[in-house]
């Protein structure tokens, strides 16, 4: 089984590396001291840098606003849960695009570029960051052409949805491919932001997990597996804890 020391160390490292302090107020320290020290020689967690307001790493302010607005249509705020924007999906995507994912480090982007069959999968040589830059610019232009120069963020929800439906159907091009490919990418990344562990900048207050009843980063269900078919209502917990650890 995992040593508790190791667990604490890693949590500390994750905090430093990912730096999504927005989800973890510094005031938590006192609450977990004593029972859960953060390193062998320390009784309180390392101070967490406050990162509000968030500084965009990849997006321009306009791009960030646009992605937030799109996230709010892909996962709208309603009586079930908060929307994609409030959940932090744009922040999540920004961080992803600024990192290895955006750079396409793990993907095969070697030429020559030649279009293929649908069965051969996407062939573009652009990184995900480049695809966003181009795709968002193409959407801005498409929106302006349809709505007399208006920005997407100023449209009504119904108009935004109509535009996104056209985008989904391939109404314009982004680079050599139709807008469908980029829309699929948006759906995927917005979902990721809504449902990934909060350390990545989205899934605020574990809203995504609470929506479907997913208990998060737990790793031991031996005590409940025998309760087959029962509604378990397990509180979610993330890699860096959960709000319940730190009563206000």
């Amino acid at each position: 089984m995992t040593s508790p020391i190791l667990r604490r160390d890693l949590l500390g490292t994750a905090a430093a590396l990912v730096g999504t302090a927005a989800t973890l107020p510094a005031a938590e320290a006192a609450q977990i001291s004593g029972s859960l020290p953060w390193s062998p020689s320390e009784g309180t967690p390392p101070p967490v840098e406050p990162t509000q307001p968030y500084t965009w790493e990849f997006f321009t302010a306009d791009e960030a606003a646009l992605v937030g607005a799109i996230a709010d249509r892909i996962i709208p705020a309603d009586d079930l849960s908060i929307g994609g924007k409030e959940a932090g999906c744009a922040v999540f995507i920004d961080k992803q695009l600024a990192g290895n994912y955006g750079k396409g480090t793990n993907y095969y982007l070697k030429g020559p570029y030649r279009p293929g069959t649908p069965q051969q999968g996407p062939q573009t040589l652009e990184t995900f960051a480049q695809r966003y830059r181009e795709g968002l610019a193409a959407l801005v232009a498409f929106c302006a052409s349809k709505h007399g120069g208006a920005a997407f963020t100023t449209l009504s929800a119904a108009d935004q949805d109509a535009l996104l439906h056209e985008m989904e159907a391939g109404a314009f091009y982004t680079g050599p491919v139709t807008s469908t490919a980029f829309f699929n990418q948006l759906i995927q990344n917005v979902r990721e932001g809504y449902f990934a562990d909060p350390i990545y900048g989205g899934n605020k207050d574990m809203a995504g997990w609470k929506l479907i009843g997913f208990p998060g980063a737990r790793y031991d269900y031996r005590d409940v597996i025998g309760r087959r078919g029962e509604k378990l209502d397990l509180e979610p917990v993330g890699l860096m804890g959960r709000p319940g650890w730190n009563p206000a």
Partner: peptide, 22 residues
């Protein structure tokens, strides 16, 4: 370690343990 293993994005979505296609 189990303290960082339960991370869907990192391992299942981004497939971080797999051989990179590059």
């Amino acid at each position: 370690p189990t303290s960082m293993d339960t991370d869907e994005l990192r391992y299942a979505t981004r497939r971080e343990l797999l051989q990179p296609l590059s």
